[in-house]
Computed example of a mutant assay.
Amino acid sequence: MSTDTMLGALSAEERRVLLAHERAHLTHRHARLSTAVPLAAAASPLLTPVRHMVTFLLERWADEQAAAVVGDRASTARALARAALTAGRPVPPHGLGFTDRAVSRRIAALQAAPPPRLWPLSATVLAVGALTALGAADATGDLLRLLEPVLARG
């Protein structure tokens, strides 16, 4: 199936979702990760499960970005489902790769509540970690200064 065939099968709103999804891949340079992860998995077969998870998460990331752009998670899920249904035929190498990544799990995720924003939590964890590391470094310096006379005698 060609990209034209897929786009022709989608409504205007669904095409908007599809293009927002693909734009998210381009904006966030997902191709870099999509290339690096299989190379890492080829070097270490233990990373194969990580490869599959990263691939799925990149698609989910683009799904969430598309939902944010169109402002409707339900229409994003419908567009994803319709794109998957129209992809029943072999895809030429130039077709959009919109439908080949655990589609049912992605649709279910879009029908659930949006994932929480984790930036504030991440920033807090990083700040606490940085303060802990700085405190440990300061305490180590104090300990070395206290032990300096003992170490100098040795």
Score class of each variant (00 low, 15 high):
residue 60 R to I: 03
residue 45 P to W: 00
residue 53 M to S: 11
residue 70 V to W: 13
residue 83 A to H: 01
residue 118 L to M: 13
residue 94 H to A: 04
residue 59 E to W: 15
residue 76 T to R: 02
residue 93 P to K: 12
residue 111 Q to D: 09
residue 90 P to I: 12
residue 94 H to G: 01
residue 105 R to Q: 11
residue 56 F to Y: 14
residue 52 H to E: 12
residue 89 R to D: 11
residue 76 T to A: 13
residue 63 D to E: 07
residue 58 L to K: 00
residue 73 R to E: 10
residue 51 R to N: 10
residue 90 P to W: 07
residue 52 H to P: 01
residue 107 I to G: 01
residue 75 S to P: 13
residue 106 R to A: 07
residue 73 R to H: 09
residue 68 A to W: 02
residue 57 L to T: 08
residue 47 L to K: 11
residue 75 S to H: 06
residue 111 Q to R: 15
residue 59 E to G: 00
residue 115 P to H: 02
residue 67 A to T: 11
residue 104 S to W: 00
residue 53 M to L: 15
residue 58 L to N: 06
residue 78 R to W: 06
residue 43 A to C: 14
residue 65 Q to T: 09
residue 67 A to C: 15
residue 86 T to Y: 01
residue 59 E to R: 06
residue 107 I to L: 00
residue 50 V to K: 00
residue 68 A to P: 03
residue 102 A to R: 03
residue 62 A to F: 04
residue 44 S to C: 08
residue 117 R to E: 15
residue 118 L to I: 13
residue 72 D to K: 05
residue 117 R to C: 11
residue 71 G to W: 03
residue 66 A to C: 06
residue 86 T to L: 05
residue 85 L to H: 09
residue 67 A to P: 12
residue 71 G to Q: 05
residue 95 G to F: 04
residue 108 A to N: 02
residue 112 A to N: 07
residue 71 G to L: 07
residue 69 V to A: 12
residue 49 P to G: 01
residue 61 W to Q: 14
residue 105 R to V: 08
residue 105 R to L: 10
residue 80 L to K: 00
residue 88 G to D: 15
residue 81 A to V: 06
residue 43 A to K: 04
residue 81 A to L: 03
residue 113 A to M: 04
residue 101 R to V: 15
residue 53 M to D: 11
residue 84 A to Y: 07
residue 71 G to Y: 04
residue 113 A to D: 14
residue 61 W to P: 00
residue 70 V to P: 10
residue 66 A to D: 14
residue 62 A to W: 03
residue 66 A to Q: 07
residue 65 Q to P: 04
residue 88 G to H: 08
residue 116 P to V: 15
residue 62 A to N: 04
residue 61 W to L: 06
residue 66 A to Y: 06
residue 107 I to E: 02
residue 85 L to S: 11
residue 54 V to G: 01
residue 118 L to V: 11
residue 106 R to E: 01
residue 64 E to Y: 09
residue 105 R to M: 08
residue 77 A to N: 05
residue 42 A to M: 12
residue 114 P to K: 12
residue 54 V to C: 05
residue 69 V to G: 06
residue 102 A to P: 10
residue 82 R to S: 08
residue 83 A to D: 01
residue 94 H to E: 13
residue 109 A to S: 13
residue 112 A to F: 14
residue 95 G to A: 14
residue 73 R to K: 09
residue 50 V to T: 12
residue 74 A to I: 10
residue 52 H to I: 12
residue 103 V to C: 00
residue 70 V to S: 02
residue 98 F to V: 15
residue 98 F to L: 07
residue 70 V to E: 06
residue 78 R to C: 04
residue 60 R to H: 10
residue 77 A to E: 05
residue 99 T to Y: 04
residue 114 P to V: 05
residue 48 T to I: 14
residue 94 H to D: 12
residue 87 A to D: 10
residue 73 R to C: 13
residue 49 P to E: 00
residue 42 A to H: 02
residue 112 A to E: 12
residue 117 R to P: 08
residue 88 G to R: 07
residue 67 A to K: 03
residue 104 S to V: 07
residue 104 S to E: 08
residue 97 G to C: 02
residue 46 L to C: 00
residue 105 R to H: 10
residue 69 V to S: 10
residue 100 D to F: 02
residue 73 R to Q: 12
residue 49 P to F: 00
residue 81 A to E: 14
residue 73 R to L: 07
residue 48 T to G: 04
residue 67 A to Y: 07
residue 58 L to V: 07
residue 111 Q to K: 13
residue 52 H to R: 13
residue 96 L to W: 09
residue 83 A to R: 00
residue 117 R to I: 05
residue 104 S to D: 09
residue 119 W to K: 05
residue 50 V to Y: 13
residue 108 A to Q: 08
